[in-house]
Amino acid sequence: MLELKQNYFELFALAPSFAIDKANLAEKYRALQRSFHPDNFAAKSQQQQRLAVQCTAHINQAYQALRSDLLRAEYLLKLQGADPQLDSTTVFDSEFLMEQMALREALEEVRSAIDTEVALQELQVTVDERLKDLFQAFSNLWDQKDPAALKQAVGIVQKLHFLTKLQQQVSELEAELLDDF
């Protein structure tokens, strides 16, 4: 299977950093799609069509990896040879664990809250703010470019996984409650 050789940042002609201009990324993504999308080859040979599919699949995958903050953070670490998913030995600090427990409790209590909508929104704001802080912390560590900071960054990504999952559960609950209307 054909794969473009560049890493995802090179593919979009971007510097490998956490802070990226998403509008710029989207614009470049569309420019690449305009050139390589299978629609350009619908009347061409089957082989050209197949190649176009493989090529755009790669571009789409790269775009997804860079567009999402969490996936981009993970990809940056991967480029440095650190895979947060493989390293499962990390022990979280007790402060973080306590906070997680409190947040999960809050999630469970939403259903029985007097005003579920308000409770849900409060929780959403808390989780969103925590995520924002962690992403900022990751960005700062990444910019330091030294091994100790990188190790810390791996820990941050693991925390981000926790919180992102929680964020998902909050929106699933929102969906469930919303659909009852």
Binding site: L2, L4, K5, Q6, L11, F12, A13, E27, K28, A31, L32, R34, S35, F36, L51, C55
Partner: peptide
């Protein structure tokens, strides 16, 4: 393809 990527981007 690899050569064409930068061309596609520089087209803009």
């Amino acid at each position: 393809m690899n050569a064409a990527v930068s061309k596609a981007l520089s087209g803009h």
